[in-house]
Structure formats: structure tokens, C-alpha cells
Design a protein around this nucleic acid. Structure first.
Lengths: 256, 256
DNA sequence: ATGATCGAACAAGGATCGTGTTTAATGCGC
DNA sequence: GCGCATTAAACACGATCCTTGTTCGATCAT
């Protein structure tokens, strides 16, 4: 229900202004009041905003990570290309630890037909991989974070620590030579750290824009990464600094 | 794609005869050859049967459990009533271990709005519970069995053993006073056993027809169950024998 | 108390899915 | 190698579902 682009419009508007009235959103989107109301209801159910009489106010803090449902849509084509490149780095028969996040979800889809052992760290990826006849699916325990469905907590870390993987594919919110790999969520960061510790080879996958960002929680220094898969959009200074830390950089084209 | 009742017809026919030609299935269902062909393709993708030129042969052994996709449909109304009764036995705030299977999937749906801590033992139930704002979801590790998506294996048993629950809701394939609770799958049986051991109270939920059946793998004696929720269809002899083992029996109406 | 807002029910429009037909390509048996 | 049945792809029709807009009565805030 509700076309995704209108949802994005609404969420963006509400987040930008802090709060919006139904009338404002009607004018913005051109939809009727009832449609706006139904949209707000759905978005409130996802925890993105809070309803009050006559409008809605944002629940997402300005510096916060935008919700999963919105991030999936953004830059899908680029994520597919990054995912394809990652898939190429992985050989049949390997055991793979697959991080949570929208980019890694695309990696899951790219890996679906292959003969592999995969432990996904989010339920989204797990669902994408059920039905893939050739992959042996291994689920860690843990608590799925709402929306993101990333598995976190002591159960997750224990599940990971009990195993050893050929490759870990790690997504990130920020990645620089100076601060290393960083994430928004503290619990996520702990899981990523465990994942890196349990794998022989670590592939970090990150859009070029992330190579200039730093998020709250430090996961690991750049040197603990084997290979970074990114795109042409990454500033040369950033990639050179990372390469200087001993990391292999692979880039795909930003645009088709 | 494909209406579920025709799928059931096809799978039943193929399983009964061992193999069927496309022409036979056309006559049986009244559908066109192309539709049959598409159905067979879909069913083969689910691993239910094997395609050969001109027809298909069954991959399900005669005494085997019918596949999940078919069992979900059967007796849905009754399952809902059983699930509602189970939900009534559970108080807000409890920690609940929820078994795999189609009946327990309905229990998950019945519990979705409540304030509870739930650890589901199948991905189907887990998916049904994501988005339930009030429930704290706890996932065990393990390998999801294809189709069923029931989590099994050492990771699952370890996850369960690390926790203690107020209530375990257990589904079953067979349940008699003599043989106790039985399951088709050996790995499943081990998980159920761990679940029963980790819970203070054990609620078994089973359609009346299951109270005369016995499946391959023995899970636990009837005495280890606290309460059985079943329906009027259960033979009086069976329920009395179970009651004699010290189990509380609760029944719902078989038909609306 | 009054006005705006909300939620439910109903109706229309569009999109999507399932199904059947046609066509061309493929594979099997002779 | 030939002929036949089977299959896969492409297209078209029909039904169904989803989305949206409207109306109405109920609700809430000023």
C-alpha cells in the first residue's frame, strides 16, 4: 500500500521540517487527505514518525541513519554492481559470513545461485537466501533489530565466535584510513567486530560516499580489512590512504 | 502463481501413482497443458517432484510428511481456533518458546499483538513476528530446513539450552499416551526435546487426528507435557489415556 | 459548542496475476 | 535423419486485488 516515492517524499518533508500538517503534505504530494492519512498511519506503524491530530512529527533524529525501508531503494543499481563484484571475489564452496545492511542484501541476492555456505547477519538476507537450493544456510541467533532485522546481541556474537569462515563480507556506515570501519549502531558494531575476527579474509563493501564519512561506533581499523569494493565516486585521497594501510581496493563504475 | 487446490490435486495424484503424465493431470484438473507444465515447474522448484519429459515423478516417499506449502492451507480455520486457545493460556510478559510447524505459525500470528518475549523455532514464525512492536523477538541459531524453515542443529540446541522460558508451545506430528510426543524429522525431534527441557510449562498443540498417530522420532513422554490443546475430533479413548498420564486437556470445537 | 479531523464503508480506477492460445524451438524415438 | 510429441517464449484475455478518492458519521480540540 502506498507508492514508495510518495512515502519518501513524506518522510523527507517531515524529517526536514520536524513536523508537517496533513494539508501541507496534500499540497506537496497532490494526493487526497485520506491517502495522506493512510500513508502516515503506515509510516507510524514502521516507527518512522509519530502521528498527532492534524499532522505528524518526525521520530528520526537529524543525524540518524535513515530507516531501512528507504535505504533499500536508494542507489539500487550501484549496489547491484558492487554486489556483483563482491560475488566475483568469492569462489564456490567457500563459507561466507554476510553482514546486515542494504548493500549486503544485494550481495545475498547475487550469491543466491552459488554453491556456498552462508551465514547472514540479517533476516532480510536470510529470507533472500531461503529457496536457494545450492547454498547451505546457517543462521546465527540473536535479536533482530526492528526494521533493519540485523541480528545482534550476545547470542549472535556467540554463534559467530563458535565458527570460522573463509570470507566475511562487511557493510559499513563509514570507512576511512584514519578512523577505520565505523557503524551507527553500537550493537551492530560489536557483531561486525566478531565477524571480522572469525574470518580469514574480510571484504568490505561501501559506496564511494562512505569513504569520507565516519559514524559513531568504531568497529575495526582499516588494516584489518583485506579488500574494499567501492565505486569511482570515491575520492582519490581516501582510496590512496586506505591503500597505504595495506588494503586492496577494487572499484566499479558509479554509473552504468 | 497456481491456485493452491490444483497444486494439492497434482501433488496428491503424483504421490499416489508415483508418476503422472501431463495428459493425465490435464484430465484430472481440467486445466490446459501449459498450466500443468507451469505448475510442475513450480512444484519441482520446491523440490516436491521431479520433472521428466511428458510428466513428473514424485520425490516424496509414501510415508513422508507432506510439504509445508500444502499443509499451511489444510484446516486453517481449526488451526486458528487452536492458536487462539493457546494464546489465551499465555499471559502478558511471559517468555515463550514457539515450535516450528504450520499450527505454531498460527499461534505466532495470534500472539503478534501481545507484549511477550518470543523465541520462534522457524523462520516462518519469525517473519510473522517481525513488525510486532510489543514482542521482543529472540532468534536461535541453526540451519533452516528447506521449505519448512525449521531451525535445527547444534546451534539451535545450544541457543535454547542457554535460556529458560516460562512456556514452550510445541507442535507435533503424533501424540499418544503410549508413545508420547513424536515427530517426523530426527533433527526436529532433538530441538523439540531441548525446548521442552528449557521451559517451565509445556503446551502441546495438536489437531485431534494427531492423537492417534505416531511418527518416527520420539521426542518426549506424554507426562512431560503440561497442557494439550486439541479439538473435539480427538477420540475419547486417546484424551482419557493422556489425561491419565497427568496432562491437562483443553479442547476447542472442530467446526465453526 | 463549533469546527476541523479522523476512521470506516463504499465505489471506481488501474495494475497485476493467472490462464489460455499461438508460435517457434527442442528433444526423443523410429 | 525424419517425424512426432513436448517444451519454452510471446502475446492476449479475464479476473482479482490493490490503491485511491469520496462520503458519512463519530471524535476531538479550541
Amino acid at each position: 500500500m502506498g507508492s514508495p516515492d510518495r512515502w519518501k517524499q513524506i518522510v523527507d518533508a517531515v524529517r526536514a521540517a520536524g513536523r508537517c500538517t496533513v494539508a501541507e503534505l496534500m499540497e506537496l504530494t497532490g494526493a487526497s487527505d485520506m491517502t495522506i492519512r493512510r500513508d502516515l498511519e503506515a509510516l507510524a506503524a514502521q516507527g518512522l514518525l509519530e502521528r498527532y491530530r492534524g499532522g505528524a512529527r518526525s521520530l528520526i533524529l537529524r543525524g540518524d541513519e535513515p530507516p531501512f525501508a528507504l535505504r533499500v531503494q536508494e542507489g539500487l543499481e550501484l549496489k547491484r554492481r558492487l554486489a556483483a563484484q563482491v560475488a566475483q571475489l568469492i569462489s564456490d564452496g567457500e563459507s561466507v559470513l554476510l553482514d546486515s545492511g542494504t548493500t549486503c542484501l544485494e550481495v545475498a541476492r547475487a550469491l543466491a545461485g552459488r554453491r556456498l555456505t552462508i551465514m547472514p547477519l540479517s533476516l532480510h538476507a536470510a529470507n533472500a537466501l531461503t529457496g536457494a537450493a545450492q547454498v547451505r544456510l546457517l543462521l546465527p541467533g540473536g535479536e533482530p533489530r526492528p526494521g533493519e532485522l540485523a541480528l545482534t546481541g550476545p547470542l549472535t556474537e556467540a554463534s559467530i565466535a563458535a565458527l570460522r569462515f573463509d570470507t566475511a563480507v562487511i557493510g559499513c556506515c563509514g570507512l576511512t584510513a584514519q578512523s577505520g570501519l565505523t557503524a551507527y549502531d553500537l550493537a551492530d558494531a560489536a557483531v561486525k567486530r566478531a565477524a571480522i575476527a572469525a574470518a580469514r579474509r574480510v571484504i568490505a563493501v561501501a559506496e564511494g560516499t562512505k569513504l569520507t564519512r565516519t559514524a559513531l561506533a568504531v568497529v575495526a581499523p582499516a588494516a584489518s580489512i583485506t579488500t574494499i569494493v567501492t565505486d569511482d565516486g570515491a575520492p582519490a585521497a581516501a582510496t590512496e590512504a586506505l591503500a597505504g594501510a595495506g588494503v586492496t581496493i577494487q572499484t566499479v563504475r558509479t554509473e552504468a
